[in-house]
Design a protein around this nucleic acid. Structure first.
Length: 150
DNA sequence: GCCAACGTTGGC
DNA sequence: GCCAACGTTGGC
């Protein structure tokens, strides 16, 4: 089983939105590196941190489980959607998504500031300079260490 | 294939 | 709102 960290601005989609939904699709990925991870590396049963970005206190707020393999993202085909992509052809879809299942909120959010303060986590892609990918891998050790901070 | 212009992300 | 960093686009 693998571990991931998945970012979302809470104004767009928050951990509470996922909690309310139970299971939801993770649509709107429009970055090729991230799409390739969804397509090639994601497996049902993988665990992921839910990270709130672009908010007063960015950080890890909960966990979820990957609940499907990658499949075409229909929002790419709909001109009314914010993430419509006229170049994504339903015959050969360019953008993919997965389903995710809410697991739980952490007892307390772990802020980005705090993640940065731990030597154990300096290798996390999330913390590397210039990283902007909305999905990044987490090693088993990093996962366990972050869980121990809760 | 190069590269300038432009767009997006995301912390602060 | 600013700005660094990076991705995408499109002319050549």
């Amino acid at each position: 089983m693998q571990h991931w960290l998945v970012k979302s601005p809470p104004k767009r989609y928050s951990i509470d939105d996922l909690k309310a939904a139970g299971v939801d699709c993770w649509d709107g990925v429009r970055n090729y590196q991230v799409r390739n991870m969804l397509r090639d590396d994601f497996r049902t049963g993988d665990l992921a941190f839910f990270y709130h970005s672009e908010c007063p206190e960015p950080g890890i707020v909960g966990t979820m489980m990957i609940a499907s393999g990658a499949y075409p993202d229909p929002t790419a085909f709909d001109p009314k959607e914010k993430y419509f992509d006229p170049k994504s052809d339903p015959e050969s879809p360019r953008w993919l998504m997965v389903d995710v299942r809410y697991k739980r909120k952490l007892k307390r959010p772990i802020p980005l500031k705090e993640l940065r303060a731990h030597d154990e986590l300096t290798e996390m892609p999330l913390l590397r300079r210039g990283n902007r990918l909305s999905i990044t891998p987490v090693t088993p050790d990093q996962w366990a260490f972050i869980m121990s901070l809760e």
